[in-house]
């Protein structure tokens, strides 16, 4: 464990707290993509299936349970919460996710760390899917132009988590002999690259004060 990975995990937890605060606390799903939320639930339920047999550490175990629980809670409220459904914009949240899930599934089967292990295929699928899971959310924000304050912090924290993981991988690559995780490195790079445009507008809007809303062209 190094500071970059710890901060990355904390940023990930923060993104969940912000989203739960908005959806469950604020009873509003305005500007939030259910498609992204559902893809993240798929990502965690597939990647963390090794909860059943892998106890790398209590820290990992607890956070895996937290991420699965939080992502399923978000999907549940967005699908069945009366006020959340009323504020969720289904026709704007229209990104064709089948064009994301299918290629990731094919890639997961073809490119993974052990072609004889179904878990490795599922694990690789979840890594690839996470890299693109944010696209419906960014697509929705682009469509709406203006990003509500809490939503902008949620997306920022979610983007920052994988950016911090990139620093974590660089640190581990430099300090641990023969450490390499090409699948997660490349996917993490793609994932973080997708946020660059948002990061730029987030920074532009927040340098005038944290409560300014983010405007996307």
């Amino acid at each position: 464990m190094n500071i970059f990975r710890f901060l990355g995990d904390m940023s990930h937890i923060l993104s969940f707290l912000l989203l739960l605060h908005k959806i469950v606390g604020g009873k509003s799903a305005a500007g939030i993509s259910l498609r992204t939320a559902e893809m993240y639930a798929i990502v965690f339920c597939t990647r963390y299936i090794d909860l059943l047999w892998n106890f790398a550490s209590l820290y990992n175990y607890l956070l895996k349970l937290l991420f699965i629980g939080a992502s399923l809670t978000i999907v549940y409220f967005m699908r069945y919460g009366p006020s959340q459904k009323a504020t969720y914009n289904a026709d704007e949240d229209a990104f064709p996710v089948q064009y994301l899930i299918a290629p990731c599934a094919v890639l997961g089967v073809l490119i993974n760390q052990d072609h004889s292990s179904p878990f490795e295929m599922v694990w690789a699928f979840s890594i690839y899917l996470e890299a693109v899971a944010i696209l419906p959310q960014l697509f929705l924000l682009q469509k709406q132009g203006e990003v509500e304050n809490l939503t902008s912090h949620y997306v920022f924290a979610l983007g920052a988590y994988r950016a911090l993981y990139l620093l974590n991988w660089m640190f581990r690559f430099m300090t641990e002999p023969d450490y390499q995780q090409r699948i997660v490195w490349l996917s993490g790079l793609v994932q973080t690259a997708l946020y660059c445009d948002f990061f730029y507008h987030y920074y532009q809007s927040k340098k005038g004060g944290l409560n300014k809303s983010v405007k996307l062209p």
């Binding site: 990992n60 956070l63 991420f67 760390q113 997660v184």
Partner: peptide, 10 residues
């Protein structure tokens, strides 16, 4: 085919 890396990260 990449050799197995332990999955110690989230």
């Amino acid at each position: 085919e990449e050799e197995e890396e332990e999955k110690d990260e989230l």
